[in-house]
């Protein structure tokens, strides 16, 4: 198995007919993902990229059995689109959109928490993320598909291109990935490092995890605590932003050291304290995993 996405995932793209939605949906289709529907209010009944377009997410679920939604809706309407997907019974909502007001996300999060508490099978990934890919099976996001390779390492990250960098290094070292999850660079998101680590811990295919964090917030510290209490699989981490000045937002809305918290040093210390290998030099992520006992086993298995 893998986590979140697999061959049978049926994707509806919200904002399919827009430029970003259109471009990336095509890339997903080319990768082999089952994009079964699109939603653009007012364009229901048409066909785009050979995919039927509906006015509402509910119709895409009813008519096409969509269970994963990929959201490309612009920031001003994105939160409403995510809520629509929740309400339509989509199980996995992946929000790519960057620039959603944080209070909108707070309202989305409140709805998400309430629905999950009521027993709804629901998960939100993102926003402001590259999406999710299970190499060789399904790609739901904007990552370049070909750099990935099926294998045993799970990746979870707050950053897009930094994830590609890590994937590329692993693939170049002959180490494939089980599932790669971009949880996004916003301060309020649907899935945390802890949630993703929990999924990887319970996934048979995943043998080790690479976690890519950055300054701001305390998600990495929480992950360290979770690792200590619940995880048996090795975790390798990289934290970006050692040289970022405090009080300044570094591109991502969530990447800011404020009020003395969220700093690089604290995160690295918290991770190392519990036995997570923290890679200091970004260029050495692939080599570090390859040289580790788990990496050696993977490479030996591939060679055999």
């Amino acid at each position: 198995m893998s986590i979140l996405l697999h061959k049978r995932s049926r994707i509806v793209v919200q904002g399919l007919t827009g430029s970003a939605g259109s471009f990336h949906a095509k890339q997903c289709i080319d990768y082999g993902s089952a994009v079964v529907a699109g939603v653009t209010p007012g364009k229901g009944g048409s066909t785009h990229l050979g995919v039927p377009v509906y006015d509402t997410v509910r119709e895409s679920v009813r008519e096409r059995g969509a269970d994963v939604s990929l959201v490309f809706v612009p920031p001003f309407a994105a939160a409403d689109s995510i809520l629509e997907a929740f309400d339509a019974g989509i199980k996995l909502v992946i929000a790519i959109t960057e620039g959603i007001p944080v209070l909108d996300m707070a309202r989305v999060k409140a709805d998400l928490v309430r629905r999950r508490r009521d027993g709804q099978d629901l998960r939100l990934i993102g926003p402001n993320c590259p999406g999710v890919i299970t190499p060789g099976e399904c790609k739901a996001g904007i990552m370049p598909g070909y750099i990935h390779k099926p294998g045993p390492v799970g990746i979870v990250s707050r950053s897009g291109t930094l994830t590609y960098e890590a994937v590329w290094q692993l693939t170049s070292h002959g180490i494939g990935q089980s599932t790669v999850v971009g949880i996004g660079g916003d301060p309020v998101n649907g899935t945390s490092f802890v949630d993703a680590l929990d999924l990887f811990e319970h996934d048979d295919r995943t043998k080790a995890v690479v976690m890519i964090g950055e300054i701001g917030g305390s998600a990495e510290e929480d992950a360290a605590e979770f690792f200590k209490r619940r995880m048996t699989k090795p975790v390798f981490a990289f934290i970006a932003g050692k040289t970022a000045p405090p009080g300044r937002r570094m591109g991502h809305a969530g990447a800011i050291v404020e009020g003395g918290s969220g700093g690089h040093g604290d995160k690295v210390a918290a991770l190392e304290r519990v036995g997570i290998t923290v890679v200091q030099n970004l260029s050495e992520i692939g080599a570090t995993v390859a040289k580790s006992p788990i990496g050696a086993r993977v490479l030996a298995a591939v060679a055999a």
């Binding site: 990250s157 707050r158 950053s159 897009g160 291109t161 930094l162 994830t163 960098e165 660079g185 890519i212 950055e214 300054i215 990289f238 970006a240 932003g241 050692k242 040289t243 970022a244 570094m250 591109g251 991502h252 990447a255 200091q280 030099n281 970004l282 260029s283």
Partner: peptide, 22 residues
């Protein structure tokens, strides 16, 4: 990319230099 931009600054620092910007 924001994450890679930060990591690039960090690499410059690690190599003994200092970044002029993000």
């Amino acid at each position: 990319g924001a994450g890679l931009a930060m990591a690039t600054m960090d690499s410059v620092h690690l190599a003994g230099g200092s970044p002029a910007n993000f």
